[in-house]
Design a protein around this nucleic acid. Structure first.
Length: 573
DNA sequence: GCCGTTTTCGGCCCGACTGTTTTCAGTCG
């Protein structure tokens, strides 16, 4: 039984308990247990005898976890399901609706799902309940409308485009003394709902006026002394932007606070409490001296709590606090560590630019090498190369290499793994290439066993160096193929195959969580590549680096940081 | 329900905002 399943049952149990009016701390305890299970590196089902080793798991929740492992569910959850309508937990996801309101509506008006809630609000039945009124009724209707429209989370690169425009505008005003991105976009999550900024100023009112008069603003959601919230449209992308206005001395604390994540902030406050202090967005308050300590930057903020600087990408409560406390934070990979891109396409297959143009653009970026990896003959839609065309390309690469004495173009391929698991080129071709990437572009719907075997067999070929975009997901568009990832990671370890982190912001594949798991549990090595189909595509690298950092990767985990000669040694012969 | 350099009971992260009140409960990030 997978940890994700056990964790989901615990979450459901917590939702139902909350709706049932249980002690909020008890509910919180179950949520914490769910998180601990989700984050456990070991399958929890294999550690039944020491469940209480998990942080936040005690006698009570250990018993429930054991029950879930043995019976697939929990008796308490089933009883609550009998008692409460199954649609109630869905209502928790409506903004402005918490357990108390939902339970009151159920108790007083027998509302059990979204449709009944909508009908009751439209018939103005809600306003007469104690604690509710006309405004709340209207808010409920708006929330339902918003929810049904489902404003999908935007991809990171779209959010960055909007954020960059807004930041430029903010930086132009002399009354704004400091400005930084905060929230999930600063942590570089793969999708973003709102763009958060923290701004330091002594004239919040005037700056608020300046913000709402930005030409790209479509709508002012909220304009106060401490927060301005607007909807902007930049190049057709509409997003919500929240700007927090603070005094210069509060800036560092506010930046930390609004960067989050929420879970990370909880851990920070708990630590401060050990010293008897209170952390808020304004600083760290010591009740004994009644002094609120402020900081010049985040590093000073962390130092005050006896911690090293924790990079934003790690602030997810995935173990960074424990590591920071012991001085064992990873030295995350930096953009400057990167020496060359090993996956890109040219006019030979479905790319837009020539080998020479790609090479020159990469050299301009300061790279020492690239690999040209056009598609193979099976992939007709992408104009995949025949063996003859591949050999013509080798001749051209040799010509291009004559132009440089400080830069090298490697001969590669992105070769298809065929639906039956065979590879698209024979070994006598593969052995002549510097680098062989294998990947799947067909028959996505095969079952888990077949799909996993396809990839594992490709890894077992002694010439295959890399598996590109291993799970095949397209964020917000297509799910990952059905794969047994533990099996894939084990096979990568056994065969010395390198897994790609594809930096295309639509892919980011492997994702942050798989990277962390593959590194920590299997000790794998990775490669970060843009999969560029044009010179512009090379610019996607920062999204790959950011995702690698979210996956706790260090320089030594990524082959693109190696000098050319060492890279060649690391690749299979 | 969990937990302990304030340790086996009594807390559990903090402050702002909103809409409902007439001093506060609920929700959010």
């Amino acid at each position: 039984m997978k940890n994700a399943y056990i964790s989901a049952v615990l979450q459901q149990l917590a939702d139902f308990m909350e709706l049932n009016g249980e002690n909020p701390f008890k509910v919180g305890a179950y949520r914490r247990a769910a998180r601990a299970v989700e984050n456990s590196r070991v399958p929890v089902a294999e550690m039944m005898d020491r469940l209480e080793d998990l942080p936040g798991v005690g006698k009570g929740t250990a018993g429930v976890i054991e029950e879930i492992i043995t019976t697939g569910t929990s008796r308490q959850l089933e009883e609550l399901r009998q008692k409460l309508p199954s649609g109630l937990p869905d209502l928790l996801s409506l903004p402005g609706m918490g357990p108390k309101s939902i339970h009151a509506l159920y108790r007083e008006l027998n509302i059990t799902n979204l449709n009944e809630l909508k009908a009751a609000a439209e018939q103005e039945k809600i306003r007469s309940l104690p604690g509710f009124g006309p405004k709340k009724e209207l808010k409920i209707l708006e929330a339902i409308e918003q929810f049904q429209k489902r404003p999908e989370r935007r991809l990171l690169h779209e959010a960055m485009l909007v954020a960059t425009r807004v930041k430029d505008y903010l930086s132009d005003d002399g009354r704004i003394l400091r400005v930084e991105l905060a929230g999930s976009i600063r942590r570089r999550k793969e999708t973003i709902k709102d763009i958060d900024f923290v701004v330091a100023t002594r004239e919040p009112k005037e700056v608020g006026e300046y913000i709402v008069s930005m030409p790209e603003v479509l709508e002012i959601v909220n304009q106060g002394e401490t927060k301005v919230s607007v909807i902007v449209r930049v190049e057709g992308i509409e997003m919500n932007v929240d700007v927090r206005l603070v005094s210069p001395s509060q800036f560092a604390s506010a930046l930390h606070h609004f960067t989050g994540s929420k879970e990370h902030n909880v851990r920070i406050r708990q630590r401060a409490k050990q010293f008897g202090w209170k952390v808020s967005e304004y600083g760290i308050f010591d009740p004994e001296t009644e002094v609120t300590q402020t900081f010049d930057d985040e590093a000073a903020f962390f130092a005050h709590l006896g911690l090293p600087y924790i990079p934003p990408e790690l602030r997810e409560d995935r173990g960074e606090m424990e590591k920071a406390e012991r001085g064992k934070l990873p030295q995350l990979i930096e953009p400057g560590d990167y020496r060359g891109d090993l996956h890109m396409h040219t006019v030979y297959s479905d790319g837009a630019d020539s080998i020479l143009k790609m090479a020159r653009a990469a050299r301009e970026k300061g790279y020492e090498y690239i690999a040209i990896t056009d598609h193979s003959r099976f992939l007709k839609v992408a104009n995949g190369l025949t063996i003859e065309e591949l050999k013509e390309q080798w001749a051209e690469i040799d010509e291009v290499n004559k132009e440089f004495d400080d830069f090298t173009v490697l001969k590669g391929t992105e070769m298809d793994i065929l639906p039956d698991g065979r590879l698209d080129f024979p070994d006598e071709i593969l052995e002549q290439l510097d680098i062989v990437i294998a990947s799947i572009h067909s028959s996505f719907k095969q079952d888990e066993q077949t799909m996993t075997r396809r990839i594992v067999e490709a890894m077992e070929n002694p010439h295959v160096d890399i598996i590109a975009h291993p799970t095949g997901r397209l964020i917000n568009r297509r799910h990952a193929y059905a794969l047994d990832m533990d099996h894939i990671f084990q096979a990568a370890k056994d065969t010395g195959t390198i897994l790609e982190l594809n930096a295309n912001p639509h892919r980011l594949d492997l994702n942050d969580e798989y990277l962390k798991k593959a590194k920590e549990e299997y000790g794998l090595t990775f490669t970060i590549n843009t999969d560029a189909h044009s010179v512009e595509g090379l610019n996607n690298l920062p999204y790959g680096i950011a995702t690698a950092r979210r996956g706790w990767l260090e320089k030594g985990d990524v082959i693109n940081t190696l000098p050319l000669e060492e890279l060649k040694k690391r690749l299979k012969s």
